[in-house]
Simulated assay, not measured.
Amino acid sequence: MTKAKETSREPADQSAGWVTFDPNLKILDCTVRDGGLCNNHQFEDGFFKRVYDTCVAGGIDYMEVGYKADKKLFAGTGCGPWKYTDEEDLRREVGDNDSEMKLSVMADTGRTNPADILPKSESVIDLIRVATYIHQIPAALKIVKDAKQKGYEVALNLMAVSTVPDYELDNGLEVISSVEEIDFLYVVDSFGSLYYEQIGDLIERYKKTGKTLGIHAHNNQQLAYANTIYAAITGVKLLDTTMMGMGRGAGNCPTELMVGFLKNPKFNIRPILKFVQDTMHPLSQKIDWGYSIPYMITGHYNEHPRSAIALRDSDRKDDYLGFYDEIAAI
């Protein structure tokens, strides 16, 4: 009887272990970039370096170090240095990045001047991630091709696709499929409104482009981790996370959760847990991010979380019912 039980259990154990061990699955930690949206990138001195050291020690594959924002558009806005990610600021923290971890930066279409992106030979950055809405794809592709010509890996992040009609998304994906300069294509749940069935449908449609896929999930409905796991199981290779889930509004898939899920021995959860304990938990007492009812409500209604962010920053931050009535009436 005992032997029969062991035999019947073996295939399931092997299957689960293989899914989580897949050596091609990579983590991209975007604590500094997405987390910077919580405080206008005004982190205390030493925060960036502690994130960097933790990612290196934890075996993280990519760390996103900030934005490449056009200083003419964001002049005088009180942003911290990682809104712009100048090379001198970056090298002051990481030197020549003498590690196996790659560094990425986000370039928002319409908010980035390609002239601010140096040739790869002059930069410690490895990956340029171009964020675009569906109607901006032609402008985004100019940044993509410029970055690729300069020697970078390039990703395209399609934003707010939960609001895009199917025919329009399919047309956009058809254009993207013919652009050789795109190394990675991201499924992005901008409003944290998508369920795994919808994530799965998007993944299957994105796969037709022939690109390696990534996922960036928001946690409005407490589904960022589940949707990221589902994406990994169904063939997505780049998994976005942040330490303790820090990110705009409801935040993101927590790095510590994903490292715990992936059984690849290259990852080491201990330095990540120490960083979360020593730095992120105290920071969470000062800055508001993560799941809360207002973010759940905007997620349910497939709305940008800006109204929930404004509520959480007001003197009626916990007026859940009043906020619900306001959103439901829109």
Rank of each mutant, 00 (worst) to 15 (best):
K211V: 13
P138A: 05
M106H: 00
M243L: 14
L158F: 01
D13M: 12
T7Q: 11
Q149P: 02
N97I: 06
Y52V: 10
L194D: 08
D61H: 10
T255H: 01
D240S: 06
Y67A: 04
S162T: 13
I327G: 03
A328D: 07
G249P: 11
V188T: 15
Q14N: 11
A140K: 00
M63E: 14
S162I: 13
M280C: 12
Y295H: 14
V179M: 01
V144K: 01
R50W: 11
A147F: 05
P23Y: 07
D170W: 06
N157Y: 08
G58E: 10
D325V: 08
I269P: 04
S190K: 03
R111W: 11
K49H: 10
Y186A: 00
T112M: 04
R91I: 07
T112A: 04
E326V: 05
V144S: 02
G35R: 13
P265Q: 00
T209D: 00
Q221M: 13
V236Y: 02
R270G: 08
Y196M: 14
Y67D: 08
Y225H: 10
S162N: 15
A57M: 10
Y186R: 00
S292T: 09
E256N: 07
G80S: 03
Q149V: 14
G58D: 08
P254C: 06
D22W: 05
V105D: 13
T132W: 05
A16G: 02
D96G: 09
G17K: 08
A329G: 02
N264C: 01
G66S: 12
N227D: 13
E326G: 02
G214N: 08
A329D: 09
H218L: 07
I287D: 05
A69L: 15
Y84D: 04
